[in-house]
């Protein structure tokens, strides 16, 4: 497994975590809890975006592994 595909895997699992966090932010009734989960979801999304950036960079540096 190349570095690129490892990063892709992590980004994908963060996408799932983001969805679950966002779901909890919807379900929970306490305003404070909603806020906490909303913020957490935002931060996870930011991390994922940065990883996606890195994936693009890796693919540009090593185009032979693109799409793996």
């Amino acid at each position: 497994m190349t570095v690129g595909s490892k990063v892709k895997q992590t980004a994908a699992s963060l996408k799932g975590a983001y969805a679950t966090l966002a779901m909890y932010a919807q379900i929970l009734e306490q305003e404070k809890d909603k806020q906490t989960f909303h913020e957490a979801a935002e931060q996870v999304e930011q991390v994922r975006n940065q990883l996606e950036e890195r994936i693009k960079q890796l693919e540009w540096e090593e185009p032979q592994y693109k799409g793996i």
Partner: peptide, 13 residues
């Protein structure tokens, strides 16, 4: 599962 996913991602990073 969610907690485990987050912790795994942390270890990966």
């Amino acid at each position: 599962l969610l907690l485990a996913t987050l912790q795994k991602a942390l270890a990966d990073v």
